[in-house]
């Protein structure tokens, strides 16, 4: 008898809990629902605000006619390729200059030696 009563109580509790679950589940849903509905209402407002601008200008590109940058690039632009050819030619000039200086030095030494030997 006792067992039957306890079983009945347990069953009743389970039923109550089971029926309460949707209620619990319902609780959060009104929050997003109400949150969604206000956010949905500003969206049309935002859409209607820019639209007069293209309407004035009569342009066919409303998607990009928002008065701002629609896609912001990442990083910094690479707008300069170093003139490599210039530095290579500079290197050649420096090398040529050094060779000429060496040749001049050799010639001077040759001259001094010749004079020293009395020729």
């Amino acid at each position: 008898m006792r067992r039957t009563v306890l079983s009945a109580v347990a069953l009743a509790c389970t039923a109550v809990l089971a029926s309460a679950m949707p209620a619990f589940a319902d609780d959060p849903s009104p929050v997003p629902d109400t949150a969604v509905s206000p956010s949905a209402s500003p969206a049309p407002v935002a859409e209607t605000e820019p639209s007069p601008v293209p309407a004035e200008s009569g342009d066919p590109a409303p998607a990009e006619d928002t008065g701002g940058v629609t896609v912001v690039p990442s990083g910094a632009p690479d707008t300069g390729a170093a003139p490599a050819e210039e530095s290579a030619s500079d290197g050649l000039l420096v090398g040529g200059g050094a060779a000429a200086v060496l040749a001049a030095g050799g010639a001077a030494v040759f001259l001094v030696r010749r004079r020293a030997t009395g020729e």
């Binding site: 006619d65 701002g68 690039p73 707008t79 300069g80 390729a81 170093a82 003139p83």
Partner: peptide, 27 residues
Amino acid sequence: YRHSPTPGQRGPSVLLGHVTVGVHGDG
């Protein structure tokens, strides 16, 4: 930059150019 406003539109219109172009010299 085609994702920016065109010059004269409201917003920042962005144009880019090179300062130097490698073997071709000045940009």
